[in-house]
Design a protein around this nucleic acid. Sequence first.
RNA 1: GGCCCUGUAGCUCAAUUGGCAGAGCAGUUGACUCUUAAUCAAUUGGUUGUAGGUUCGAGUCCUACCAGGGUCACCA
Length: 504
Amino acid sequence: MTWQPNKLEQERLDKARELQKRGVELYPRRAARTHTAVQAIEAYQTAEANTPVQVTVTGRIRRVNLKGKVSFMHIEDESGRVQLFIRINTVGEETYSLVKDKLIDVDDFVQATGTMMQTKTGEISVEVQELTLLSKSLSPLPVVKQQVLDDGTIIEYGEFSDVESRYRQRYADLAVNLTVREIFRKRSRTLKAIRQFLDDEGFLEVETPILQPIYGGAAARPFTTYHNQLDQTLFLRISFELYLKRLLVGGYDAVYEIGRDFRNEGVSFKHNPEFTQIEFYKAYIDYNGVMDLTERMVAFVAQQVTGGTTITYQNQVIDLTPPWKRITLRDAIKQESGIDYMDHPTAEALETAIRTKEPQLKPGQTWGKLVDHLLSKYVEPKLIQPTFIIDYPRDISPFAKRVDYDDFHVERFEFFIAGMEMGNAFTELNDPLDQEQRFLDMKKLYADDDDEATPLDEDYLRAMRYGMPPNGGFGMGVDRLVMLLTDQRSIREVLLYPHLRDQK
RNA sequence: GGCCCUGUAGCUCAAUUGGCAGAGCAGUUGACUCUUAAUCAAUUGGUUGUAGGUUCGAGUCCUACCAGGGUCACCA
């Protein structure tokens, strides 16, 4: 065995051997559940008086109360808990001794057959006639006791809260922390609601390559990998954008994809190296149409997941009901920082202007990056209520179409909730010659940082030359939306297996 | 990557100025035929993240390393 049992585990192992000696199978092949825990209780509640309700329930033992010749257990399945009432003269001496000798123990999975009844203190329980082991637990789970009050609220005594252990052993976290289990149910409902919304709007769900010979669609460093037989360097995608828009050339009017993006960058409370993204593209709408879809979609998802469109996030009440505030990036930055970036149209001038407020400002950034810096430093933290920031500088938005009022801005918005950037969208550029020039401009801008430059994608340009309908596109970090809907401050709390370093 | 904080029993946490490493829960043994955080009595359990150093003496002070969290940088 590679496993070195600790003292508690050794005791369990000894119990397992004793069970085998008594002829008890530790891991039998089959179970025969007739009712979930909650169904068993409901069956009793809806049954006619004096009609016995016979059930077979299964689950993990979460509490044992041994009382001489009678014992109580709570078993838990995904539906909830039900109490087992075990009497020596109902279940027989042989089975009772397994309980009495603690050979069947907390954390084990068992199957119980019996009749539903109500104990003297009123709890609906299974009076057990047959009790069998389904799976012996050899390592005790962290001890968390729960008290269920009359109004259904659960008070926990003892906790399993060390974040590192919880993430490294998510199975144990889920097994004992009911609130954690609930977060991932909400995550699932979030995904389902997004799909339902977009399907109802006539979108087609598609899948595009994760392994890409040319990455693009965002400014980020990629993960690089290699195909041995093809002798080909491949990148894990950093966005879906360019592959999805090719599909509009192909004749679909509205497509979306939900999947994983990979970015080889820092890890933080809102960044994981792999994260879930939703992108959609719809022909014949512009970014105003996308804004309309965005606020309706987020409100719909919130309604499906939380039952309303007003949520509480980290003690702040946030109203997701459309319409949301819309303000240009220029006005927002002017309001919060006092700097009008149009007064400083070169990188040097803008850097000088910011330096009066921030002497430590990193020198040599491009004009677009400086504008972005002003946004994230002065504006973003203030955007608690959902807000669309619209019209971005052209040189940080290579896939967005120009506004009609000047040459500096493009029709792009990002939207923010709870001080977090949630998503990004544009009126998509569909002019292949303009697009080619943007690629070339990006190359120049990022000359000393080509990791992040968007590589020129010839095939994408060829697709565009066939003719791409005017369209609006959208991308959103799904993990961040789940954070919002589950009131979690860290992205790791909404990822079942967040990225951690190897344990040495 | 820089800086700050944290790491003690299976879990959650104590440990005075550097002076015998402790508690609750769980575990073990015993009692109990309606308990529910069951209760009562007794009891086991430690390479204090790792490796060095200072000291008569280190959980505590110093150095390096490992891991986690926070923050800045990077980045949506």
